[in-house]
Structures are given as C-alpha cells and as structure tokens.
Amino acid sequence: MPKPALRPFLRLFLLLAALTPAAHAAPGELVMLAPLDQTMPIVRFQNGALAGGIIKDLGDALAQRLGRRAVYISVDVPSVTPALAGGRADAMCYVLPFWIDGDYDWSTPLLPDNEMVVGLVDAPPLRSLKDLKDKPIGTVAGYRYPRVERVLGKRFARTDSASMELNVQRMVEGKAQYTMVGETTLLYQQRIHPGLKVRPELVFSSFKAQCAFSRKSQVPFAEANRVIDAMLKDGSIDQILARYR
C-alpha cells in the first residue's frame, strides 16, 4: 500500500535543507541523494529517511569500497538540482542525463529498466502510443517523458501523482485506465500484490540508469567510477538487483 504523504512541515524542512548552502561532505563520507518521488524497490523511506531499496544497497556497497561512510539526503524533485549541482551531495543514482538539470560527471550505465505503459485488465488494448491521445495517463509529477511528449504533443493528458506506486493505486481505484511505470517497480508491485489486476501494454523506453556525480564533490569521480565498473564485472550489481526480483 502507498505510504502516507509526508506532513507539510516535514516536506518544507527537507526542501529548505536541500536549498540551504552547506559545506561539502565531511571527510570519509559519501553523501547521496534519495529521491522522495521514487518507491520500492528503488527506495524505501521510514519517517522521511532512506531505510532500504536498491539505491541504499548500492550506495552502501559503493561507500564501503571507497572506504567511506554512506550518508543519504531525502529530496523531492525540485531540490535535486540545487543539492547536487551545489555540492551538498556527492552523487545520485538511478538517473539519466535528460531526467535532471545540471552539469555532472556520469557513471557507467549500471541499472537496467524499461519505461512502460500498463493498463487495467479490462482497458482497451493499445497498439501504439498514439492510442493514448487525450486519454488520462498516470504520470509522476516532475518526470519527463520525452518520447511520449513527441508522439502525443498537446494531447498528452497527464494526471500527476507523487510516485509510480501511487499511480498504480489510483489506476486500480478506477481514476485512470493507464499509467506509466518502470518495469522494475511494476514487477515488485506484482510480487507483493499477487492479485494486482493490471496488464503490461507498451514498452516505450529501455535504458540503463546511471549515477550522477557532482562536479563539486570531494570524492574523486574516476575512483568512484572504477569501483562501479568493478561491481558490474564481479556481479555485485546483479546481486543487489536480484534481492528485489
């Protein structure tokens, strides 16, 4: 079930914290951003703090190999660029260059996923993205869907929610027939909710997400990327992903 929305004062606190100028990571730390718009298996929050998920497992493993201590800052979408470009955080993982603004050092692609449209089991089947013209589609606030935007233009009828998990829930409640979701998130939702009555419709983007490293980070990017390459080669990334399949 979706987690309750953060209290307004807590969201304000997190936003102000991300925007407030701050020193770089303390010596021996690897500070990573945890996006509040993501859900399991990418992230799991408890009282607004990152408590589990792929990003935490990856960050913990990366920090350990770098000989550092992993620290996580929870941020909403508008706070990502100020925190990362400004150097308050060293890195953010599970992201692509066109998803966020700013100039960063980009790691080797490491986290495979698909962006897809899913529908209710009784919704009309889709032959292509063009079939979605003027149809309400569950989307995540602040997310960019460039391919869908190119195909649908002004007939892209977004219905934004705070996360993919909430979009799936809204669809099941009958508030939309279709929603856009990452395959990793969908498979996890189907695993924990075996009776989920949704049907995969279209895969419109396949990608391998990366880690974006701040140009103001005190963590040498070349060293961090070498560690990521090593984790890919020795199967550590696959082991992390396997925990959530």
Rank of each mutant, 00 (worst) to 15 (best):
A212S: 10
V198M: 01
V227F: 06
Q189P: 02
P194K: 11
Q190P: 02
E183D: 14
T179I: 10
R191K: 15
A222L: 06
V198W: 00
V203C: 02
A176I: 01
P200N: 02
V198A: 04
T179K: 07
A224D: 02
G174E: 07
R191I: 03
Q189M: 14
N167T: 02
S206D: 02
V198H: 00
F221K: 00
E201T: 01
T184L: 11
L202W: 00
Q218R: 14
T179L: 14
F207L: 08
L186E: 04
Q190T: 05
P200R: 05
Q169Y: 12
E173C: 09
E223C: 06
G195H: 10
K175W: 13
A224P: 00
A176L: 14
V198L: 06
L187V: 08
I192C: 08
A222G: 05
R191V: 02
L196Q: 01
E223V: 10
V198K: 00
S214M: 03
S163G: 07
F221R: 00
E223N: 10
I192K: 12
F213R: 06
D160N: 15
S206A: 12
A222C: 03
N225R: 10
K216S: 09
M164N: 14
L186D: 04
L187D: 12
L186S: 05
L166I: 13
M180N: 13
N225A: 12
T184A: 14
F207A: 08
L166W: 07
D229H: 11
K197R: 15
F213M: 13
A162S: 14
M171R: 04
P194G: 13
V181W: 02
Q177D: 15
V181N: 01
L202P: 03
R191Y: 05
G174N: 07
S214G: 07
A224N: 01
P194F: 12
E173H: 11
Q169C: 06
M231F: 05
Q218S: 15
M164Y: 10
S161E: 12
I192V: 15
F213W: 12
A212K: 09
D229W: 08
D229T: 11
Y188G: 00
S161M: 14
V219E: 00
R215I: 00
Y178Q: 09
V172T: 14
Q210K: 13
I192P: 05
R226D: 13
R170M: 15
V203H: 01
H193Q: 15
D229P: 07
M231E: 01
K175A: 14
V168A: 11
G195C: 06
A224S: 05
M231K: 05
N225M: 06
S205T: 09
A162K: 09
